[in-house]
Design a protein around this nucleic acid. Structure first.
Lengths: 235, 235
DNA sequence: CGCAAACTTGATGTTGCTCAAGCTAGGTGG
DNA sequence: CCACCTAGCTTGAGCAACATCAAGTTTGCG
């Protein structure tokens, strides 16, 4: 096998490290490698549109996607942000019921649906793994419903910051690659409220905003309590 | 095989008609029959509590369950109502992250998790079927996020009534077996707002409230438009 | 019949939205 | 290299939708 120098952003993919391959044997991994291809998206570019026929499943390799639904008058609800390791396209048989587009430049690994389905049937443990993935998503969705339906603006922002921190495996600093408007549409708020709430948290010394798109969690404990809804009236 | 007269609520189960058996062969159905048992719950009785270790998967045969999460100060978000044909327990490996209890008297079919897992591995198509079930749930969850984050009280109620009608396969009349408080906690509202909004819809002739727990959809078209968010300012 | 739980209705309050203005950062072209 | 332009962000003032608090009414049940 040749180890060759490749383009800037596309070093030879380590297939065994892919999320879809976790727990698969060598042979299955080589199947995945054989059927997959790489795709790139520029910021704002769409991967799926609501109503699209879908023929692929994607795994995010780098960057961030947002997945959202719209109401006719333009109200938008972002139902999730997807970053490296997340799968897109499992939930929709036939048609996609939401829009997925790129927040930042994104690299994806594409798996044709037909081949993917074959893996489900033939590779032991694969279906179980996918089931676990969708179960995780379902659990996240339930947390998000609790957030949307019952948390205050401050609690929503705290929960969001902690979620991003966890995802970035960072205890201190969070990189927000999306806009305030994206955050607002994810949390069921307006940009103004997001902005005001961040300012408020900052003035309380709970967080710091050292640079655009960057948040420091200076008082993590306070954030955790806020996110858990344990500080009923901590104005 | 003996066909025997059984207790009032427990006629011999038609296993082939169970949701878990859809698409399974005769042999697989007999496996299901062999491992399953029936369980009953009285209103208010819990099936799972948040944090429980879980060893079973259940299918609802009759009645209605609610599934919810709580914040420390008692705020509650109901993430779903389950009625006949729904499965409970797929999403949680090991531990349950929400509470499930009975709204009405409930009959369930219980499947031990270990046996269930064996089916997943051995019965072709079974895993795929479960994947389809969780995908449906995921889609419903996304709709609910849109509702919770971006719809008005009136739109929420309209969506809810239509959802219940669809579920009951009824075009005209909906039976609401849960309380106003349950509805409120499902839609991210208060009981008062639910009550007021129903009254408002009634006074507009969109619905009628002929009896406790019963709603007639007198102007279905209006409801559909409301639910879709097409009537921005139709006060 | 009487009680408790559920529901409705009214009066008032508050959170977060709307509308509006000014600020900041980063990219572009002169 | 700088000035401009724009998209994104912040801040303020006023407002509206929904929550809260508080009676009263209905219903089902013991």
């Amino acid at each position: 096998m040749h180890v060759q120098a490749t383009m800037n952003v596309a070093p030879r993919l380590d297939y065994a490290a892919l999320a879809v391959c976790r727990g698969l044997g060598r042979e299955a991994v080589s199947h995945v490698a054989a059927m997959s291809s790489v795709r790139r998206l520029a910021p704002g570019e769409a991967l799926f549109n609501e109503g699209d026929r879908t023929e692929s499943i994607y795994e995010v390799l780098s960057g961030m996607l947002r997945i959202y639904k719209l109401l006719p008058d333009g109200r938008r609800q972002i139902t999730g942000f997807l970053s490296a390791g997340h799968l897109v396209g499992l939930a929709h048989r036939n048609h996609c019921l939401y829009t997925v587009d790129a927040v930042t430049p994104v690299t994806l690994c594409r798996y044709p649906l037909a081949h993917f389905d074959r893996l489900v049937d033939q590779v032991p443990g694969f279906a179980r793994r996918l089931l676990a993935v969708t179960s995780d998503e379902l659990r996240a969705a339930q947390d998000q419903m609790l957030l949307l339906g019952r948390k205050t603006a401050e609690e929503k922002i705290a929960s969001f910051l902690l979620m991003m921190a966890k995802r970035q495996k960072s205890d201190e600093t969070v990189q927000l690659s999306m806009t305030r408007s994206d955050i607002a549409d994810y949390l069921g708020l307006t940009t103004e409220t997001v902005s005001r709430t961040l300012t408020k948290l900052k003035s309380h010394g709970t967080i710091a905003l050292p640079a655009y798109g960057r948040v420091e969690l200076t008082d993590r404990e306070q954030l955790e309590e806020l996110a858990a809804g344990e500080l009923a009236a901590a104005a």
